[in-house]
Amino acid sequence: MGISILKAGIADTLQDQGRYGFQHLGIPPGGAMDPVAMLVSNALVGNQANEAVLEMHFPSPIILFTSSALIALAGADFGAEIDGVAVELHQPLLVPQNSELKFTKNKSGARVYLSVADGFVAEEWLGSFGTMPLVQKGGFKGRNLATNDSLLFKKKQVDKIARLIALPWRASVAEFYFDNRIQCIAGAEVGSLNQEGITNFTQAVFSIGIQSNRMGYRLNGPNLNTTTQKEYLSSAVDFGTIQLLPSGQLILLMADHQTTGGYTRIAHVSSTYFATLAQSPIGKQLQFEWIDLATAEKKLIEQEQNLQQLQNACNFRLQEYFSND
């Protein structure tokens, strides 16, 4: 009763909304890179927002369903197919036993999420089911999935079904993803940039460098120069913090960021843009623009409300569907 990994992808991990309450011990929150896709995939199958989902990249795994299941995919479009039939993102799918899910083409985005109704059996560590490979804890044995691993479902999903069924609705997620203009609030040390550096930050184009991963993105662009020191006493940083390295290059911290750092904090990406960042692959060009904190806070609340509405609508449709069944 679960899934089997016929062929592992690059860094397939179980993730949830992250591990909080331990950053004072240097333990990073981690969690899904794309919080919107994680929540949407859960909502589509009737799960709580924080249920652990499978985060996958391209090349992606080939997955065998060893029992029938209600699933959803959200995030990147990697040309998902079930037994050779193309399936949509953001739509609940009833999948028969022994179906094979594979991803055929890196079309858009950077990571795709798979949820199953009621969730996967996962290891909890310090209150979270997210995978932390450094300490080999959380998720599936604290590590990336490997070929031949089997993940169990928490509950039996659905009665045996004869064929693949796409339930007749899709979640619309367009409002949660933006173009390449990323809004940021000013960082504490932005004032240490010289005039040219400040101008370049919002005028220049930065591309996501090869050395980018779940910890952070390297941003290739013009060197930004400072008028004062380039290192500070270590203090807290967060998902979305943009730091200036002594070389003049920028680094953008992502889900597995360290808890503290001493590089110049130029800016902090508004959290409504985390999903957009998470779906920006290596080589993608970004530009930054300023937003004030009060507006960022309002947008964050608005996004949470919209996601809550989406979740309510999904639950309603699911109940309706299964009561008429």
Binding site: Y20, H24, L233, S235, T259, T260, I301, E304
Partner: peptide, 21 residues
């Protein structure tokens, strides 16, 4: 308040906006 991160000469609170509001 989800996390409290003390450092050399600073302390940071990570919070859930909706809950604090």
């Amino acid at each position: 308040i989800k996390d409290i991160i003390p450092a050399y000469s600073s302390i940071c609170l990570v919070y859930d906006c909706k809950a604090v509001l």
